[in-house]
Amino acid sequence: MKVTFKIWRQENTDAQGELKAYEVDGLSEDMSFLEALDHLNEILVLKDEKVIAFEHDCREGICGQCGVFINGRAHGPHNNTTTCQLHMRSFKEGDTIVVEPWRASSFPIVKDLVVDRSAFDRIIQQGGYITAKTGTAAEANAILVSKEVSDSAMDAAACIGCGACVATCKNASAALFTAAKINHLNKLPQGQPEAHRRLLDMTAQMEFENFGSCTFTGACEIECPADISISNIAEMNARYVKAKLFG
C-alpha cells in the first residue's frame, strides 16, 4: 500500500512550522496508523533525516498520550476512537493523508506533532482529587453508593485526557474534560465535602489557562474516545450555579 503523508514539521515551540510531503510505500492495511508513522521514521533515519516526533505510549487506546489531526479530524476518520486504534485499512491506495498536531493555543507545540497538554494537569491540580491522606480511610462498605450513582460516576471518570475535545472544538474549550472530572468526584459521597470548592477552583483554572468557552456545538463528544457525553457540561454548569449560590 502506498500513500502520501503531508505532515506538520516544526523544530520547536518558537520555530516556524510547515507541512512536508512524504510518499510512503510498503505499508499494509493491517498496520496501525502509528505503525505507518514508525515505518516512515525508519525510512527517514536511513535517509539521514530527523524522525517525526509524535506522541504515543500504550497503543491500546487507554493512556491518552497519542492524538493528532488526520485529514482535519481529531484522531482520524472514525468517531470515538484514539489515533493508535486507527488502521491503514481506513485509507485507500494513493490517498493523501494530512497530519497535524492538536491546534489550541493552550496546547503549545513542543515539536512536530507533539503538543504540551500540561494545562490539563494544572486543572486537575486545582481540585480533581479528594483531600484525604493515605491511611485515613474507613471500611470501604461503610458508605453505600448506589449502583446508578457509581455507574454514572464511572461514565465520567472514563476520560483518558487525550485532548481531542479541545482540539476539535472551534473555541478550543476544555469544558468536556473539566466537567468529566468534576462530575466524577462530585457525584460520589466521598467527593461531597469539597464539591463546591472543587468546582469553582477547577473552572477558574480552566479559564486561567485560556481555554475557550463552550457553545454547545457537540463536536467534542463525537471525537471523545471515552464516549464522555456532552450532558456532562450541562451538569457542570448546573452545579456551578448551585456552588455560586450556596458555596
Binding site: 479528594i130 493515605t134 470501604a140 453508593v145 460520589l188
Partner: peptide
C-alpha cells in the same frame, strides 16, 4: 478502603 476513599468508582451491587 483507600481507593474507595479516593473516589474510585468500583463496580457496586444495587
Amino acid at each position: 478502603d483507600h481507593f474507595v476513599q479516593q473516589g474510585v468508582p468500583f463496580a457496586r451491587e444495587y
